[in-house]
Amino acid sequence: MFQKVFVSSVLFAAIVIYFNTAIIQYFQSFVKTSVSQDKQVNLFTKDELKLYNGIDKPQLYLAILGKVFDVSTGASHYGNGATYNFFIGRDASRSFVTGKFDVNDVSDQVADLTAEELRSVNHWVQFYNKDYKRVGKLIGRYYGADGKLSRYGKEVKKLIQAAELSKDNEDLEKLKYPPCNVEWDAQRGTRVWCTEKSGGISRDWVGVPRQLYLPGSQDYRCACVKIANEVSASLKQYDGCDDNSHSCFVTS
């Protein structure tokens, strides 16, 4: 009797283990499949993307720098007749900075834009990444049929990185040399002066106004320099301005 009960218990335990293992394996397989599906990237041709206009297909898709986003949740902005419907079903990256919303001006070329304009396009990409779902890539200027970044796409990526870096350097320069306050008076001319908050940059020093020249250029801006006798090829004292004066009237 004891042996029968023991054998039955062992058999029952084996069955439980078998089914538990099978269930675990099933869910592991399901998770792996789901993850694999999530990693799959949808590729769209221009003709396919055009269909996601809320009419031919219910979704609203747009592309920027070849990245395709589903903006259906923003139908009030992107739906038929809405302000930004121009961007639906196409890649009109250039228009994000030019503001030209005519079908004759549709272009995804941005390599010739200024650093500031490239930063603006990149900020739009960041906006869509944050607020909308990215659903794939557009085959064309930025991505090949294999989904890999094209030569043009790589070049634009480098240009954007350089543009963002130049902005960081510009911000660092303004921390080191904050802009002066400037005012013009019909009787006395132009006055430049420094305070602890000039240029919108708070600090614990005032500084003296100097001409700060841009590299390789004859153009300059007024900058507040912390040390009056600082020597730099980029800095020049204003004519007629005392070495240690925080405020000067200048002729140019």
Rank of each mutant, 00 (worst) to 15 (best):
F127R: 08
Y142W: 03
L159K: 02
V182K: 13
D239I: 13
G147I: 06
D185H: 03
T190A: 06
L165P: 05
Y132C: 08
R141L: 14
N129F: 04
Q161L: 07
K137E: 10
D239W: 10
G207Y: 05
E170V: 12
Q211D: 07
K157M: 04
Q211T: 05
S245H: 03
K158L: 00
Q161H: 09
D242E: 02
K197D: 14
S234T: 11
K158E: 05
G153D: 00
E173F: 11
R203Q: 10
D239C: 01
W193L: 10
Y152D: 02
L172R: 03
V231N: 01
V208A: 03
G147D: 02
E183T: 15
C241E: 12
V182C: 11
Y132T: 09
L235A: 07
K158S: 04
K226R: 14
G216R: 01
K174N: 11
I227G: 10
R141H: 06
A162F: 12
D168L: 11
L175C: 03
L159D: 03
E170P: 07
L138W: 00
V208R: 05
D219E: 14
C194V: 03
V121Q: 09
S245Y: 01
I201R: 08
V208N: 00
E173H: 07
V156N: 00
W205L: 10
D168Y: 10
E183L: 11
Q211L: 13
N122R: 08
Q218R: 11
S120D: 12
C180H: 11
G207S: 10
H246W: 04
K167G: 08
D131K: 15
E117A: 15
W193C: 05
Y238N: 05
R191A: 13
S198T: 15
C194P: 05
G200M: 03
C222L: 04
S234F: 08
R210V: 09
P179D: 13
D185R: 06
P179S: 07
Y142M: 02
D146A: 09
A163Q: 04
G140T: 01
Q218C: 08
Y143D: 04
I160L: 01
A223F: 07
N169M: 15
N169T: 13
Q211N: 00
S232A: 12
V231E: 11
D168I: 14
G199Q: 14
S198G: 13
I160P: 00
I201D: 05
G216I: 06
P179Y: 00
K157L: 09
A162T: 11
L118N: 07
L118A: 13
R203L: 02
P215H: 04
G136N: 10
F127P: 10
L175R: 06
D204M: 06
A145E: 13
A186W: 07
L235T: 02
Y132I: 01
V182I: 14
Y132R: 05
I160Q: 00
I139A: 01
L149Q: 05
S217I: 01
